[in-house]
Amino acid sequence: MSEPAPSLLVSPLHPRHLEQGAKLAPFAGWRMPLQYASGVLAEHGAVRTSVGVFDVSHLGKVWVTGAGAVAFVNRCLTNDLDRIGAGGAQYTLCCDAAGGVVDDLIAYRLADDEVLLVPNAANAAEVARRLTDAAPPGIEVRDAHRSLAVLAVQGPDSPRVMEYLGLPHEHRFMTLAERIVDGAAVLVCRSGYTGETGFELVAPAEAAGDLWDGMLAAGARPCGLGARDTLRLEMGFPLHGQDLGREITPVQARLSWAVGWDKPEFWGKPALVAEREARPARRLWGLEALAKGVPRADMAVLDGDREVGRSTSGTFAPSLKRGIALALLETGYRPGAELELDVRGRRLPVRVVKPPFAEASSEA
């Protein structure tokens, strides 16, 4: 007799998602909204033209505190926290010794002795474990995955929603502000995963319901992970486990801008420096369909009868009304090259492009 499947975690907003008719799906050990009754296309359109709100409380939250916390994190993760000051946020990578990407995450530099890391749900425990194992005396690594909620309000009208709630909204892209709301400390970062002007809020789990209700009252449309995926792919943002991973390095994924090459050390530096100097055998590019067809992940990219790469992500882009994909291609292929994608036995003509695929209003 097989053992029962382990219970899935749920967001603090789970009862509200049920009330709002969300279609729920398993995701990295959590049961999260895939879409609401309006559907992915309507949710995608709301973010591009007005405003939507996502519950992304499944994302990890790892506090690193103690004297020298910033310096310690800087010795571990790829990007250089010294490029930003207190009150700044930064995209960075946690790599293994071979240069593979354990996870990509956001680092919030709150002070020299306090950093909040937001990794992906599936990798949060592993990131926390690696940091805990490496931490010197005086540095504490604390996993706050369940005690904090994360909401993302995204779209050109997102500042209006923030103003309605009395929350900070005039700070610069990838900077932080904090506001006490009904006794709860809410951290507001001007950032997001959609390419649009937006804000990501980190708040105590018990405060999430009132924030969500306020955003809906201000006119934000609830959006699920389906629209989040189409939005991020239109911008060419990588998804860990598909476009990034232990077998896909930052050099291959064209994420060298998120690596502090001049830092004395970070996890995986020797391997990544060697790969960059030798030139990688493959690189991640965008593919734009030239005919009707929807690319998906793990499809062969063909140059004549020769396979020259594989797609890593693919979808129908609602903003563009055509298929798009990210793909790892042999080094030497550049934007403008025309290839074919094997879509279930049918050859779909595609053009290599440099993402983003769509324009958005973000300062990113």
Rank of each mutant, 00 (worst) to 15 (best):
G309C: 04
M299Q: 11
K354V: 14
V352K: 07
L287S: 05
A297S: 07
L302Q: 03
A297M: 03
G304C: 09
D298I: 10
G332E: 03
A317G: 10
L348K: 01
Y333L: 02
L302S: 00
V353T: 14
D303P: 06
R351V: 01
A278H: 08
A325K: 07
G336R: 02
G345Q: 07
A281E: 15
A300Y: 06
A327W: 02
L329W: 06
R306W: 15
A281R: 14
S319G: 13
P295Q: 06
L329V: 08
R334W: 02
L290Y: 13
G332I: 01
P335E: 04
A289E: 00
P280H: 10
T312L: 13
M299R: 04
G336Q: 04
D298V: 12
R351L: 02
A325E: 02
P335D: 02
L339W: 00
D305V: 12
E307L: 04
V343F: 02
V273E: 14
A271W: 04
K292A: 14
R306P: 05
V353F: 13
R296E: 10
A271H: 03
A300L: 07
E330K: 09
Y333A: 00
E307F: 01
E338Q: 14
A291P: 01
V343N: 00
A278C: 06
A271I: 08
A300E: 15
G286Y: 05
K354S: 15
E330M: 03
P280T: 15
A325I: 12
L272D: 03
D298Y: 03
E277Q: 11
G323D: 07
F316R: 14
V353D: 05
F316H: 14
A291Q: 14
K354Q: 14
P355I: 06
L290V: 15
R306V: 14
V301S: 00
K292E: 15
G336F: 09
D303M: 06
P280D: 09
V352M: 00
R322K: 14
A327Q: 10
K354G: 12
E275K: 06
R306D: 07
P280E: 11
A271K: 01
R282C: 13
A289I: 13
P280W: 06
R334D: 11
R347I: 05
G323V: 11
R310P: 02
P318K: 00
R276G: 00
S311E: 11
E275V: 00
E288S: 15
G314Y: 04
P295C: 01
R279D: 09
G336A: 06
M299P: 09
K354P: 10
R310W: 15
L328Y: 12
